[in-house]
Nucleic acid binder design. Structure first.
Length: 321
RNA sequence: GGUACCGUAGCCAAGCAGUAAGGCAGGGGUCUGCAAAACCCCUACGCGUGGGUGCAAUUCCCACCGGUACCU
């Protein structure tokens, strides 16, 4: 009754909370397809480190291409337990992937799923990506300008802040001036577009009738699950996977800075023992999960459910009306 | 048994007479094109225990307890 917007389901939670499993089960039961909202699982060949569910590539299903929006797509969809997982395993580790790329492609994919009469289920832990979809964030249309960034990075943070205050005082009041990345992006937008950064951060009209389901886990349980998962990643061959990747790719790539590869790198480069690297990997994963929870906590629309049964019940009601 | 050194938050650790640095872990938070990123904030009325000196002690002295090293 609330609107005619297409229904979309979202399953979110911190890393290792079990959202992947929930997503697959719900997809199987309610005729759905998964859209991964994960900034790292997009990379091919980064499987163990990103805890990607094991799946196969299939070309039976092809998302309708629409120009550059799917230019990376090779026409293959990642299938896990019979469920298509879109936006997973789609680009090479040395390709750039940003929030804007995610949003553009996700919108196309969701539309395609809906067109086929299926339920889109967005599953992921990258809060900003999910928010971009839920709130239809209108991302300032200034692409990353690597040259400008390199130039600006030569200056000190306080110099950059001064510049920003001069050319866009409104944004300077809003953003975190301690954070070089945020200051740089603001500057980039202002310099390239000529307009205020803050004023270009808008929201479009809502695209979907979204039901957000969160998986809350007591901190202690979450942490022990994380520790166990890291041990499993090691047992599954995270070292070998990392070695294979470094043969082809530089440590400095964004993908290689992801949790897992980064810490194994410390060991592979002889900077610390393997057991020390594993401890740090566990710690960094815990920190990450904590940050994810901080992000999700502020969205009061999320339904935090204790168990899977509750999720099914909620989804049924959601699909009915 | 003797001698020396040490004992400061969950862990590591500085201070060594004027009223507890820092790091890690932990907690809270920020977030519109790198977001598994990049940032910000919080965390010892207390310095092994008991005495003593002194205006003042975690800092000096004594004893005891605990640990470590060496000696016998």
């Amino acid at each position: 009754m609330k609107n005619n917007l297409p229904k979309v389901l979202i399953i979110l939670g911190p890393t290792a909370s079990g959202k992947t499993e929930w997503g697959i089960k719900i997809a199987q039961k309610y005729n759905g397809e998964v859209v991964s909202a994960d900034s790292r699982q997009v990379y091919k060949g980064m499987d163990i480190g990103t805890a990607k569910p094991s799946g196969v590539k299939s070309s039976k299903l092809k998302v309708i291409k629409s120009g550059e929006q799917t230019r990376h797509n090779d026409g293959h969809i990642y299938i896990v337990e019979g469920i298509p997982h879109h936006l997973m395993d789609i680009i090479e580790p040395d390709e750039e992937f940003t929030l804007a790329d995610f949003k553009k492609r996700a919108v196309v994919v969701i539309e395609d799923i809906l067109k086929r009469g299926k339920l889109p289920i967005i599953v992921g832990g990258t809060g900003l990506y999910i928010q971009a979809l839920v709130d239809n964030l209108d991302i300032p249309k200034v692409a990353p300008n690597l040259k400008l960034r390199a130039d600006l990075e030569k200056k000190s943070l306080s110099e950059l802040v001064e510049i920003l205050k001069n050319i866009d005082s409104e944004s300077a009041k809003k953003i975190d001036l301690h954070n070089p990345r945020r200051v740089l992006r603001a500057l980039e937008v202002v310099l390239d577009s000529g307009g205020s950064f803050a004023r270009q951060q808008k929201k479009g009209s809502v695209l979907y009738d979204a039901l957000q389901i969160g998986i809350p886990l007591p901190r202690e349980e979450l942490y022990s699950r994380i520790n166990a998962r890291v041990d499993k990643q090691i047992a599954d061959g995270l070292l070998e996977e990392t070695k294979k990747l470094v043969k082809k790719f530089d440590w400095k790539l964004p993908g290689m800075s992801g949790i897992g590869y980064k810490q194994i790198g410390y060991f592979l480069r002889g900077e610390m023992s393997l057991s020390a690297a594993i401890e740090i990997l566990k710690r960094d994963t815990r920190h990450y999960a904590k940050r994810q929870m901080t992000w999700f906590k502020r969205d009061k629309r999320i339904n935090w459910l204790e168990n899977y049964q509750q999720a099914e019940k909620l989804v049924e009601g959601f699909l009915r009306d």
